[in-house]
Simulated scan of single mutants.
Amino acid sequence: MTDALQRLSEEGVAIWLDDLSRERITSGNLAELLDQQYVVGVTTNPSIFQKAISGGGDGYEQQLADLASRGVTVDEAIRMITTADVRDAADILRPVFDATGGRDGRVSIEVDPRLAHKTGPTVAEAKQLSWLVDRPNTLIKIPATKAGLPAITEVISKGISVNVTLIFSLERYREVMDAYLAGLEKADARGLDVSTIHSVASFFVSRVDTEIDKRLDALGTTEAKALKGKAALANARLAYQAYEEFIASDRWEALAAKGANPQRPLWASTGVKDPAYPDTLYVTELVAPGTVNTMPEATLEATGDHGEITGDTVRGRYDQARADLDALAELGISYDEVVQLLEEEGVDKFEVSWNDLLESTKAELGRLTPKEA
């Protein structure tokens, strides 16, 4: 069951679970995944919390009742609930954090997605979340929007570790790495120990194929059909090439000499959306050292059950990856248009989930608020 997951670990791929709920924490399921499935980290996002909390079940009823009794705002209630889950998960993962020197054993929590296009409020929210969770093995998730880039630099410069999310384009990924370096340089100038700062860059995978395959289907030609299912892997592999260039730069080596940690590429959105593709496609075909693959539980189980890990499936494939993206351009599919659309949709989807969470939590607080005598 776990041979493939063990092989991933041996190839230098860290396995993180893309899911969190109170039931998963209190039932012992999360601890079990650490022990049996090689899971060494957890990521969350507004969609995950919306699914976990809506309806008030799975262990949230008592906290919701207490918050209702206090008369807190819905925004405060959500932050109290989500940070409690992240804090408890961080405690479960603390032994991994200690054993890996802070590299893994981390839990991510995202800034309010409504702030995605606001730099100052994003920085303030990141500082607040870091303070609320109060665990060294937390990563604050900041979206890789234009406004998010300077926020990443500022948050890193304050010694707060960051998971940069919603990266779709190679150009934006390079900007993210530059923002990380700038943050480390500012932290170093402030006298902070840069060896305590960590970061991952969440490069989204499956959504690229979903959007581009739709356009290929609309073309309907033999050439178009031959390119289906290739764009996401090509994009991710070229991102890893950019990462290799990043860690070979003089600027990075100067920081590494001071103990800085590389910003690891993290493959996000690795659940396969098209049933025509193998359900482990975005795991087995994106094996490279120093990466993180964050998987929904179904993908984790599929990989453990029948995933075939054949070694590094990224390096040495850059020329083909570039050729695949070039072939899409020749068919009239604009890479820049697609990745910009995906970024906008990604932010919008998280905001919709957050608003749904606000509404459902507001309803639960109203239901549980003590009635006046």
Rank of each mutant, 00 (worst) to 15 (best):
M1K: 12
Q6N: 15
L8T: 07
G12K: 08
A14S: 15
L17M: 07
I25P: 02
T26V: 14
V39A: 07
V40F: 02
V40G: 01
V42F: 00
S47A: 14
K51V: 04
G59C: 03
Q62H: 14
Q62A: 15
R70P: 00
T73N: 06
V74W: 04
I78C: 03
D88G: 00
A89C: 05
A89L: 04
R94S: 12
F97N: 05
A99C: 05
R103K: 15
R103V: 14
D104E: 12
V107D: 00
I109T: 06
K118I: 08
T122F: 08
K127W: 13
Q128C: 10
T138H: 07
A147T: 03
L149K: 07
T153A: 15
I160G: 09
S169Q: 03
L170G: 07
R174Y: 08
M177P: 02
D178W: 02
E185S: 09
K186S: 13
R190N: 15
V194H: 06
F203Q: 07
F203M: 11
V208H: 07
L216D: 04
K225G: 10
G229P: 01
A231T: 06
A232C: 09
Y243W: 13
E244P: 00
S249M: 10
R251S: 13
G259N: 10
N261C: 11
W267L: 00
A268W: 02
V272C: 01
D279R: 07
D279E: 11
D279Q: 09
L281M: 12
Y282D: 02
L286K: 03
M295L: 12
A298W: 03
T299P: 00
T299C: 02
H306A: 11
G307N: 01
Y318R: 13
A323W: 11
S334R: 09
Q340N: 15
E343G: 09
L358V: 14
S360M: 09
K362H: 13
R367K: 15
T369R: 12
K371P: 04
A373P: 15
